[in-house]
Design a protein around this nucleic acid. Structure first.
Length: 350
DNA sequence: AAGGCGTGGAA
DNA sequence: TTTCCAAGCCT
């Protein structure tokens, strides 16, 4: 009979192996009573939703440099925040980030709620993020359940039920293991374990602090868990993007509608994206097609774009010309930056 | 409540 | 090349 998993064993491992991150207060500092800044924990957790630590780090540093407090962020221009988020993906997060910052600033005096319920009432904060802020920022014993914890719990207790059906069961197991003290360190420890030891493909069971109590390891099925329902195949859609420059060298761009794909972001005018896109040139001029197609994969479809370029002085029927001096390709979402990269050689001087 | 919503790195 | 998937939320 094996001993059940203990949070103490994991915390002892975390004390020695905690990863360093720009938003993290290391366990040794935390033990001295140094508390994390709820603003930084909130910002990091929103950025980390479905996003890797490696991708988030630079964005976190940029955001906290530009906007050191939630009050600073609330006062920012929408376009500046969307531009700073460009490339990170899931742009609804950036829109909700601003909404949340403004609610906290104008209705809550710039102070984040200190309960899970209060946090979860805010835009962009769901079950995971409310638990993460509660535990990491306030040391409340709220259990986090993200992809890491799902995998660790499924293996530790050999849960064969596929996701997402197994979520409630995994949540109960996660809550049962969450200790009353050091809840913040514990939450970060399970996620570190999932990210570095209990990985999806080749878990390093030999050096896992929970190798003894792990039921999946005992049964030799660790790599098979968690089981998941099959996912749908991605369809291929096509589209046409138009890159237009006027005689002054300005670029024709449009701010996309708030809702939907790439909502609120800058982009090139273009057709709809479907099986057989209808051309929608934004100005009446001589368009030339770029030889190479742009390929990009979104969450639920593959996209192939034809890129059309032109120089024109007639008034376009959509969008706004952005002065060349103010145009930064890095302000564009990635698919639109790819379009620019494909088109730019057409506008280089000879 | 099932599907929309980004991106880049790893295998 | 393709697939998987990473600290999910919203509708």
């Amino acid at each position: 009979m094996r001993e059940p998993a203990s949070s103490d064993d994991l915390l002892a491992w975390y004390d020695r192996h905690a990863r360093q991150m720009p938003w993290r207060v290391p366990p040794q500092d935390r033990a001295k009573g140094i508390a994390p800044d709820p603003y930084r924990i909130w910002l990091s957790e929103v950025m980390l939703q479905q996003t890797t630590v490696a991708a988030v780090k630079d964005y976190f540093v940029k955001f906290t440099s530009l906007w050191p407090t939630v009050v600073d962020l609330a006062a920012a221009e929408d376009a500046d925040v969307m531009a700073a988020w460009a490339g990170l993906g899931y742009y609804a997060r950036a829109r909700n980030l601003l909404k949340c910052a403004r609610v906290v600033t104008t209705e809550l005096g710039g102070i984040f709620p200190t309960t899970r319920e209060g946090l979860q009432a805010l835009p962009g904060i769901g079950p995971y993020t409310s638990a993460a802020i509660s535990s990491i920022a306030y040391d409340l014993p709220e259990a986090v359940l993200d992809g890491n914890v799902e995998r660790v719990m499924a293996r530790l207790y050999a849960i064969e039920t596929p996701l997402p059906t197994a979520k409630p069961e995994l949540m109960a197991l996660s809550q049962a293991l969450t200790p009353p003290k050091r809840a913040g360190d514990y939450a970060q420890a399970v996620m570190d374990l999932g990210a570095t030891i209990c990985t999806p493909k080749n878990p390093a069971c030999g050096i896992c602090p929970w190798r003894d109590p792990c039921e999946a390891r005992a049964s030799g099925i660790a790599t098979e868990l968690p089981r998941k329902l099959a996912k749908k195949a991605k369809p291929v859609r096509r589209g046409i993007a138009y890159v237009l420059r006027n005689p002054a060298g300005d670029w024709l761009l449009e701010t996309r509608p708030e809702k939907g794909l790439l909502g609120g972001m800058l982009g090139w005018p273009g057709s709809e994206w479907n099986d057989a896109p209808v051309p929608t040139p934004p100005a009446d001029t001589d368009w030339e097609r770029v030889e190479v197609e742009v390929r990009h994969t979104f969450t639920h479809f593959h996209l192939i774009l034809d890129v059309m370029t032109a120089n024109a002085d007639s008034d376009p029927n959509v969008g706004k010309f952005v002065p060349h001096a103010k145009f930064r390709p890095t302000d564009l979402p990635t698919v639109m930056r790819k379009v620019f990269d494909a088109a730019k050689h057409r506008f280089e001087q000879n």
